[in-house]
Design a protein around this nucleic acid. Sequence first.
DNA 1: CAGCATCCATGGAGATACTG
DNA 2: CAGTATCTCCATGGATGCTG
Lengths: 133, 133
Amino acid sequence: MSQAHTRVPLTERTPEDCPVREVLDRVGDKWSVLIIVMLGRSTHRYSELHRTIDGISQRMLTLTLRALVRDGLVSRTAHASVPPRVDYALTDLGHTLLEPLTALDHWATLHREDIRAAREHHDRAQAPRPDGP
Amino acid sequence: MSQAHTRVPLTERTPEDCPVREVLDRVGDKWSVLIIVMLGRSTHRYSELHRTIDGISQRMLTLTLRALVRDGLVSRTAHASVPPRVDYALTDLGHTLLEPLTALDHWATLHREDIRAAREHHDRAQAPRPDGP
DNA sequence: CAGCATCCATGGAGATACTG
DNA sequence: CAGTATCTCCATGGATGCTG
């Protein structure tokens, strides 16, 4: 870790140059973060994730897991037992991602109400007036 | 800001309970981060953003800016001059978001090659065999 | 149990043309 | 200059049924 930063603060200007965007492209979808966080706590089987995540379809769970495995963030371990058993766990790489996500989470927890407030304020500002414009 | 953390580490389990997901829902889209980062450096006018972001359509620029303004992350200042001039800037709230985004950026910069490598490795593993399966 | 395959609805996002 | 208005396309994602 000596040359990694050629001083490109956050982004240059194009979506492709931007590392943050790369992460968000992989993890900014609807389910990845949930899964990563779940696996950050402990290893889980497919069915556990399916039950716990609540709202996710088999399709999306499978697709998302595959993507995460492909990117080396999650490991997949299939046990050749009679009722098949597959465990998913965070890789070391996946664990390192947990930290910046936690930072984001702290921000979100601290400011979610600010956003809510701003939005309501803004909506109230030029909202549809009940008795006409 | 004293009771904000009832100890919900990152997510409970549902997408709705999860603050991180809330942020990603607002900022995980294709352009928000780019804009936030641009504005993190300095105030910019509409046309500057449109030129600089490169690839963004007027439609998406407008929509994204509106959403950011609505959420209180960006401020919009219209100067009533002859050629209209509108400046966009980060609000204080927007600036605080810059920090966790920077954390994400550092992670991305550090590990983008790990992901690339993992993906290539994985793709090579059970890739389409040239001479049939 | 742990998926895969298929169909289908939604809306995110680009291209283009027009306006205050 | 700083947007709006339409049209359209396609990726995301849900529901359902089948399989090793």
